[in-house]
Design a binder for these strands. Structure first.
Lengths: 347, 347
DNA sequence: GCCAAAACTGTGAACGCTCCCAGTCGTACA
DNA sequence: TGTACGACTGGGAGCGTTCACAGTTTTGGC
């Protein structure tokens, strides 16, 4: 009788991937020595070191991360969590900058960044299980609207977490890195006042984000300080271009005589410019426009935007620093990054 | 002597997270029973089931994924790999659609999608280690330029991989899902010919991607079939708007009499429209423009683009299907998704 | 009321690592 | 020449699960 032919799969799925024991055997040393080589090679003779390295190459050994993590309780990876409808973020050039700077900062510590999405409730549940199951050593949170249920869950599990922007409702418990939104807004509005504007409106961000709240607060502070408080000049936007355009239209209707507007993001400011243009107002001649973010958009608009710069590379670096220190057992901290007025042509 | 105060950290980092044994003890059952509850609850009495569930709630138990993965050899997660400079992809609305459809399809199997970035060589190395270390059960690859060193590495490890678009150089070894680029291009160019165009140029994608190569091949096939071959009418683009604009300018210079152009992506086509407009050509009056992708951009241009639709939701779903079947031990396969001509106003 | 089968339960043995301790050398110093 | 110490090595124990198997109890058919 002919032998049964070997099933096809056998070739694709090697019976067993080499373990540390296979390497040890091939190198003629013990498991312990191989492990030492794997972890920095302290207290290993040159001969052993070389034998192990050769054996690893020969066997094609790759460490089994699960086995390692099981004992070290570390996974050498952290999650970068988007719990926002994705499109909005991907559209934002600043998001790319932040993502990139976090990746770089983590790379220095040989930690992999995992970008995870959670748009639906279902997603969020699975993600919660994933994160608290020990898959990652910590989490970086962006776009933290208040009421994000992931925050308390991770906090309760003791998973190190750092938010980008004040996590409304958890400022005391979760670490975060935020730009000095209030001061930036104050700088901008003060600048508008100093350049002679008297009827200054604002388009805010969503008021369930700290950026939305704080920038509005800064606007109010600057105006109250100068006794030029002007209620009714506030319109709410949602950080989108279309939202900014619509808000600007409302503002023009409610206060046709306004001569300046502080917009809480560059993208919304771009929309506001469109609305002003359609309404026949010149910028900055009739109406001065101030943005926020100093994103790539700011230089692409006509005219280029006077705006408030927040350094995303720095924010990313600080987030990573805070996260790593928490992973090392430090208690959570908050960092506020200063903001800076950038004068261009729109104001 | 006063006792040394307990260090602060103790509160934040609970001494030990509860294990399956703690749950078993609290529920008055054995480890095995708890495990059975964890894995579907087969062969577990109602009383035991309930006792275990109560114990899990009481102890705040969460399964340790590393321990589980160590024995099951599965991590219930797959990587979605971007080895491209990120910005380009994030700008592409189709990318979002693909990402979303993959996430959804995986969610049905309770598998988490991990988006990983690898722009630099260094990144790629770390990512290689991460992936082959057993962290993920498989990988989805997008934007696969030929010469991506990650592909052979993952293949050699036997990690299930599915590429989006033919992975040039590894078509035989790696599974992939691709739109029928060649046929789509053929349809478009045939349509241009049939509507009476005679001097038909093309703007290609990068020729180290299968989309670039195949769409050009389709263009050539359609023209050769009709004996209307027109060498010199080919310009190369890079899938960006600016690249499309520049390529169109070159085309106009080399062949001022062209009356149609097939552009290998909608984004480049949008750039081409700008160039044509600047050159004073009317579309479609003087020059017909055909795009590819049917992305969101296609309806935003002036005039809206006649283009070739490839269904990204379907591509994502198929990628996941192929990946899961490979994880189950099937051998890699290729799937070609049909493309469809969408006639709008630009041609 | 008996017996086989089904339903349920507990336990030892992995899974592949790291950590720690005990041990074996060789070397420098008294 | 003895001894202490450092450099290096080997192997047991344990990380928290799942799995297979051997039990024990319950059920159902005759």
């Amino acid at each position: 009788m002919a032998p049964v032919p070997e099933p096809r799969e056998t070739r694709r799925r090697p019976a067993r991937r080499p373990t540390i024991n296979d390497v040890a055997a091939a190198a003629g040393v013990s498991r312990g020595t191989v492990s030492r080589v794997l972890n920095g090679g302290h207290d290993v003779s040159d001969a052993a070191q070389e034998a192990v390295e050769r054996a690893m190459r020969k066997t094609g050994y790759v460490v089994n991360q699960h086995a390692r993590s099981l004992v070290t309780q570390r996974s050498q990876s952290v999650a970068f969590i988007l719990s926002e409808p994705q499109e909005r973020l991907f559209e934002d050039p600043n998001f790319n900058v932040l993502l990139h700077s976090c990746t770089q900062a983590l790379a220095k510590h040989d930690i992999t960044l995992l970008l995870t999405l959670a748009s639906s409730l279902e997603d969020r549940k699975r993600l919660g299980r994933y994160l608290t199951g020990g898959h990652v050593d910590g989490a970086l949170l962006v776009s933290t609207h208040s009421g994000n249920p992931l925050i308390p869950e991770l906090l309760a599990r003791g998973l190190p977490v750092v938010a980008c922007g004040k996590p409304l409702g958890y400022e005391r418990q979760a670490a975060y890195v935020a730009a000095d939104d209030r001061d930036g807004a104050r700088q901008m509005v003060t600048y508008l006042i100093e350049s002679g504007r008297r009827r200054i409106g604002t388009i805010t961000g969503p008021l369930d984000t700290s950026g939305g709240v704080e920038r509005l607060a800064g606007y109010r502070e600057a105006l109250a300080l100068d006794g030029a408080d002007s209620p009714g000049l506030v319109a709410h936007g949602d950080y989108t271009r279309a939202g900014g355009e619509a808000a600007m239209r409302r503002l023009l209707e409610a206060a046709p005589d306004l001569d300046a507007v502080f917009v809480a993001s560059d993208l919304m400011a771009a929309g506001a410019l469109t609305a002003l243009h359609r309404a026949g107002r010149r910028v900055p001649g009739d109406v001065a426009v101030g943005g926020f973010d100093d994103s790539r958009i700011a230089t692409d608009t006509q005219p280029p935007l006077t705006t408030v710069r927040q350094s995303y590379p720095r924010i990313g670096a600080e987030m990573v620093r805070l996260l790593l220190s928490q992973i090392d057992g430090e208690s959570p901290a908050a960092v506020i990054i200063p903001t800076e007025l950038v004068v261009r042509e729109s104001a």
